[in-house]
Design a protein around this nucleic acid. Structure first.
Lengths: 313, 313
DNA sequence: CTGAAAGCGCTAACAT
DNA sequence: ATGTTAGCGCTTTCAG
């Protein structure tokens, strides 16, 4: 009756409902999950909730999931494949309805999930081998826009601090940077390219190494928010004026970037929307496991601020 | 045998384990949960993962929970009591092992959790009625330090933008502010006190109202990170120089506050540690439901930066 | 159309 | 010390 199945005497129904309230009866979700062989839980595997990029993503996923009646289990992988594998095992053991993952590596193994029939959506980063629903931004275009903006502002010796080779986003953003230089007819100088770890320290050290090695540069394109902050800190610490001596633009916004001085130019990603879209795709995949995989690419937006002001010299 | 109970023929054990691996057997956590009448899930109820304060808290909880074998379900309440109640119902229905909550209101009703025997720890904010384990900072002292610092820097007409009356943190921080003024022998001017909503917009409007009403002020103490940002934005927008015309200090740090210009003075809370401590307390409470309730108070740290530089005039 | 019964996969209690 | 069984609370199926 409580499932709204039977057609019962309305008076009886009222009495039952009263009793339900009176006795404080609560349906046991665990028993329901066991019987239905499904839960209403999603695992969200990201490298760090401390990074505002992922925060906003998670927020979107949670809001989206709520609409469909799912709760979100947070899983920080710290870019660590072992930890990632652990969480995948948990998701499997707990029969989670779906997994949204920003893989720590292009080759992250999600075959166990696929084999178990668990719905999976990758977010931000793509998987090389397995074909599953994916939501991401147009990284190559975003990076090209950023680099193109520096070129238009008059910078010519533009360095690129990108992420690890094993991550799709790092490579796509690097390609975008290279494409912009090529379009402008500028030489590709390998000394201008650094692979760091997508963290603040990585950005800092990459910036330091560029300065220490005396590589001639007049601008920096940093391929994520944290590395941008690291690079700026390094420049500030060493008294290199931004943008007069070195222009800076970063990929992905930083909250309150407008309160920084100089204001940081960035390529903004629609992070919240990425999360919402992933939630939509996952809910849909759960209802419709057979549908062909979807690949959703959202666009980025250029936000020029003072750190990439037009060069006058 | 898989529970490591029996003493079995080692050769047989090896064969079983081989079969386990071969067949890809995975224990069903849901069935286990039903039988044990317990899960390994914690619900963390906070108002917003988008706020770096809560982000860092959640990170601490997740890291702490992992150590004890728990996963964390993220629940954004948006300071909304209805949504909070919904999530409490979910935690109950899903038999979650424990709940860590930063209540949207001093009178948030957690009696259902208590009645069901679910372990609960409040974090950041306290509950007025129910006595449960609690982790927080010394808000009054932190606010007193902040205000005291402004006084030492030569400010005399210090306004306070605090949070809603219904929240313990807002009231404690207000009291700390008042205590500092009293110690300095300054008058308590009610026109200097504003209750906002702990959000950026709230800080912005409160600041705007102070300026619009022509209240004579030379400094601001804002009782959380987001309201500090809002207040600074308002001042910046209206061209009020910080700290020369108005000094600013905020409660709770903001990531990369040192990249802001002027650098924002803050009272730092040990956010990550708060989360870790709450996790510890919750795990312990689950193992030991009868132990008396604990109330853990951590200390804050003053981080003076340029926004509250000593007045020369 | 409604009520009864089987059983999801595991573990705790019980019998051997 | 080991093997067996009952049953967690629900939903689904099947019989009435």
């Amino acid at each position: 009756m409580l499932n709204g199945r039977s057609t019962v005497n309305p008076e009886l129904a009222a009495r039952v409902h009263a009793a339900v309230r009176e006795l404080g009866y609560r349906p046991n979700g665990v028993a329901r999950n066991l019987r239905r062989r499904q839960t209403t839980l999603w695992a969200v595997l990201i490298s760090d909730v401390g990074n505002p990029f992922f925060t906003s993503l998670v927020r979107g996923v949670e809001d989206g999931g709520r609409q469909f009646g799912y709760s979100v289990v947070l899983c920080n992988t710290d870019e660590n494949r072992a930890r990632e594998a652990e969480y995948i095992a948990v998701a499997l053991a707990d029969n989670m309805a779906g997994v949204i993952i920003s893989p720590a590596d292009d080759n992250t193994d999600i075959s166990a999930l696929v084999a178990a029939g668990t719905a999976v959506v990758t977010i931000d980063r793509e998987l090389a081998e397995t074909e599953v629903d994916a939501v991401m931004v147009d990284n190559e275009k975003g990076a090209e826009m950023a680099t193109g903006h520096l070129l238009e502002s008059g910078y010519r010796r533009i360095a690129c601090i990108t992420g690890p080779r094993r991550m799709s986003t790092a490579m796509q953003r690097l390609r975008g940077y290279q494409r912009a230089l090529r379009s402008a007819g500028l030489p590709q100088d390998r000394a201008l390219i650094r692979h760091a770890d997508f963290r603040e320290e990585g950005g800092y050290s990459a910036m330091a190494s560029l300065l220490d090695e005396g590589v001639e540069i007049d601008a920096i394109f940093a391929a994520n928010n944290l590395m941008t902050v690291g690079a700026v800190e390094c420049l500030t610490e060493r008294g290199v004026p931004i943008p007069d001596r070195v222009g800076v633009i970063g990929f992905d916004d930083i909250p309150w970037a407008r309160l920084f001085r100089p204001g940081l130019s960035t390529v903004r990603q629609p992070t919240y929307e990425l999360g919402r879209a992933a939630a939509q795709l996952l809910a849909d995949r759960i209802d419709n496991p057979a549908r062909p995989t979807a690949r959703l690419v959202l666009q980025t937006e250029l936000h020029p601020r003072e750190s990439s002001r037009t060069r006058t010299s």
